[in-house]
């Protein structure tokens, strides 16, 4: 099964890219590749760079900022290919930002 691990963090709190944080992410990436579970993973630029749009009545409304103006924001994601939720949760728990933010794990729908 494929799972997405959405990384939420508080932009006001977390050091954006400390050297040790990067080191920890590189280490996780390496191990996840070796274990054959890493499908994809990316870090996002900060919420201030986000643009949100809606199409209503054929018109595109564009707005500055992220979709939800909450304290904790999406900062990145991983997609893991794991046999079950327990295994996906075990990988998600190793995401360095789990120590300061929160990780939401959700199964991906597979269309056959």
């Amino acid at each position: 099964m494929k799972y997405i691990a959405l990384i939420y963090y508080d932009p006001a709190q977390e050091p954006q890219s400390g050297a040790s944080m990067n080191e920890a992410y590189f280490d996780l990436n390496r191990r996840a590749v070796e274990a054959g579970v890493l499908v994809a993973g990316d870090a996002l630029h900060p919420p201030a760079t986000a643009t949100t749009l809606r199409v209503r009545g054929g018109r595109t409304e564009t707005m500055d900022g992220p979709f939800a103006d909450t304290k904790e924001q999406l900062g990145g994601y991983y997609i893991f290919d794991c046999p079950d939720l327990d295994s996906a949760l075990a990988w998600a728990a190793q995401i360095p930002s789990a120590q300061v933010g929160a990780i939401e794990v959700r199964p991906l729908i597979v269309f056959e």
Partner: peptide, 14 residues
């Protein structure tokens, strides 16, 4: 079913 919660007795770590 959808989240793939396994039908197993957890291992020593958990």
């Amino acid at each position: 079913a959808r989240a793939g919660i396994p039908f197993v007795v957890p291992g020593p770590a958990d």
